[in-house]
């Protein structure tokens, strides 16, 4: 890959209990592009994604070896401050998970925990983030209403706005559309398209058409291994590995 890369892993292994969930994964994520991770259920794509912001720390009995770096600094070292890391690497989850607070408070939560108290500054950040996440027009009249009253698609875009408000460098998306209807999905996909102007996006998806539509690069994973990784066009049209071809042409899945 010619692009500068922002995250890279070398020989990354992860065990969950006895299960070898990631097996020497080496991958480079290019900056300000959309990279999709595809593969059948249980292949380790979400686990890999959660290595990038160390959310696997929350799970007991996880062991990791190998190297992951963000801007050439180790993500996995004991000395790494996970709070700073997660500020730089935001995440959007499979199921929209707005906090049980107002729409405004949801977006302001991140800046607040990072020390911004000035009301005017918070207002600006909230508005910009909501605009950026293409949901401002739908919610500007009711910022103080509970976020739980929004539709699923709106909730997911609110979660994206919440992530943007922290100004991360990388946004991880773990099947962000799997709980949404086609119209809401289309909105999120358009949004991803625009996000890559400013951010690096890594998206895990089940849906191969989605990967083909939104991503610049694609990695195919199978049984804990990264089988193949490259430009999306190349992966979908001329895969080098037989496994990849079988998966993409729907021979298993």
């Amino acid at each position: 890959m010619s692009e500068t890369c922002i995250i890279s892993t070398t020989n990354l292994n992860l065990w969950y209990h006895e299960k070898h969930a990631l097996q020497s994964v080496s991958m480079r994520i290019p900056k300000k592009k959309v990279t999709a991770l595809i593969g059948p259920s249980g292949c380790g794509k979400s686990t890999l994604l959660r290595c990038f912001n160390r959310l696997n720390d929350l799970i007991d009995h996880v062991k990791i070896s190998g190297e992951i770096t963000l801007d050439n600094e180790s993500i996995n070292a004991a000395s790494t401050d996970v709070v700073t890391l997660r500020k730089k690497v935001g995440m959007v989850f499979q199921k929209p998970n707005p906090f049980p607070k107002s729409i405004y408070e949801n977006v302001a939560y991140g800046p607040r925990v990072h020390g911004i108290r000035d009301k005017a500054e918070l207002d600006t950040i909230v508005e910009q983030s909501l605009r950026h996440a293409a949901i401002w027009d739908e919610v500007k009249e009711r910022l103080n209403d509970s976020a739980l009253g929004l539709s699923g698609g709106q909730q997911q875009r609110l979660c994206i706005a919440r992530t943007l408000a922290v100004e991360p460098e990388v946004i991880l998306m773990d099947e962000p559309c799997s709980a949404l209807d086609p119209i809401a999905t289309a909105k999120i996909e358009n949004l991803i398209e625009r996000l890559k102007e400013d951010y690096t996006v890594i998206i895990v998806t089940h849906n191969m058409q989605q990967a083909a539509r939104v991503s610049d690069y694609t990695g195919f994973m199978y049984l804990g291994k990264l089988i193949e990784c490259g430009k999306t066009g190349q992966i979908f049209e001329h895969p080098k590995e037989e496994l990849t071809e079988n998966y993409i042409t729907g021979r298993f899945g």
């Binding site: 959310l55 929350l58 049980p100």
Partner: peptide, 25 residues
Amino acid sequence: HEYKEGSLAIGATRWQTISRVLVPA
């Protein structure tokens, strides 16, 4: 559990997550 993950993923500390998300919820 999603609330906790959501808050930690934004880069809140564990205590911020507890005091501003978990306990209020």
